[in-house]
Write a protein that binds this DNA or RNA. Structure first.
Lengths: 154, 154
DNA sequence: ACGTATTACCTGTCCGAACAGGAATCTACC
DNA sequence: GGTAGATTCCTGTTCGGACAGGTAATACGT
C-alpha cells in the first residue's frame, strides 16, 4: 500500500506538522481575537515601536499585499493606528494602540503555551538539538527557494 | 533586542519552515499546473482509485468544504472526473482522468525533488532520526489539538 | 531641472484552510 | 411506514499567502 506518505516521508511530516501547529496557534489566538500571523505583527510593533509597512514586510519576511490587509484588519480591530510618515509621503507609520497593550501579556502566554505544546516532554537539553535540526531544514529550504538568505548562518 | 523569535524559537522555526516548504512545493507544482494540496488528492486517487469525497477528506485529514472546491478545480483542470455514486444518492465518486496520468510521473519527481531539497546533505542514517523527531512533534501537536489520533503510534 | 527608475502602498485575483449553515439523501428505530 | 438523526456535499464568509498590476511619491542620473 504505497500511501501518499511513502513518496516523501519528511516532506509529508513537515506538511502535517505545519497544519497542526497552525491550527493550534489559531485556536489559542482566537481567545485574543487574533488570527495566525497577526500576532507576529503585533509582537514586532510592541518590541520595536512604530514601523512602516515596508519594514514589517522585511522583518517578518511577508508579502506587501498581505501586510496591507493584515494591518487594515488590525486597525479595524483597534490594535493598531496608522499615520502618514511626515518624512516620506509614500509611507505610513504603523503603531500599536494603548488598547493593544492589554493583548501583550496574553499573546506572550499564548506563545509560551504553543511552544510548550510543541515541545512537550522534551527536556531542555534536547530542545537545543531540536532547534539545530530545524535550522538545518530551514537553511536547506532557504537555499533551494533562492530566498535572500538571512544575514547569519547557512 | 528581544526579537519575535525569542518568544518561542521552535514554534517560530516551525512557522518559517512551513512557509518555505510550502513555497518550494508551490513553485515546483506550478510546473505541473497544480497548487499545493491538489497533488495530495491526485496522488491518493492514483494509488487507490475512485473515491468518494468523504473518503478523501478522511484520508487526507482535510476539510469537507476545502475538498469540494479542490475537486471542482481539479475537475475544471481536467485531472479528475466526478460521477454520482450509484449506491448512494448523496455521494459522488471522484476518479483520475486518463489525461491526469501524464502528471503522475511528474508529481512523483516533484515530491522526490522536494524531499531531497528539504533533507539536503543529510545522510540516509540521519533521515530516520529526523523523521523520528518530526513524528514526536506531530504526536505532541495531535494530542494538544485534540485531533482524533492516527491509528498507530503516539 | 527634467525624465527615468525605484520605492511604498493599494487593489484585484486565485488558492488553501477553517467555520457555519443548509439541502438532499440515507439509516435506524419505533 | 414514518420520523429522528446521521451522513454527504455544497455554499458563504473570513483569513493568510502569493502574484500581477496600478498609483502615488521619492531618488537618481544626465
Amino acid at each position: 500500500m504505497p500511501t501518499t506518505a511513502a513518496y516523501g516521508p519528511i516532506s509529508h511530516a513537515v506538511f502535517r506538522i505545519a497544519r497542526l501547529h497552525r491550527m493550534l496557534a489559531g485556536r489559542l489566538l482566537a481567545e485574543a481575537g487574533l488570527h495566525p500571523g497577526q500576532e507576529l505583527v503585533m509582537m514586532h510593533l510592541w518590541d520595536s515601536g512604530p514601523q512602516r509597512q515596508a519594514e514589517l514586510v522585511d522583518v517578518l519576511d511577508s508579502d506587501s499585499a498581505t501586510m496591507t490587509r493584515t494591518v487594515q484588519r488590525l486597525e479595524r480591530a483597534g490594535f493598531v493606528r496608522r499615520t502618514p510618515d511626515p518624512t516620506d509621503g509614500r509611507a505610513t507609520l504603523v503603531e500599536p494602540t494603548a488598547a493593544s497593550q492589554a493583548l501583550r501579556q496574553q499573546v506572550c502566554r499564548i506563545w509560551q503555551e504553543l511552544e510548550e505544546a510543541t515541545t512537550a516532554g522534551c527536556p531542555e537539553v534536547e530542545r537545543g538539538e531540536l532547534l539545530r535540526v530545524l535550522e538545518t531544514l530551514e537553511c536547506n529550504l532557504i537555499t533551494r527557494t533562492g530566498r535572500t538568505a538571512q544575514p547569519q548562518d547557512c
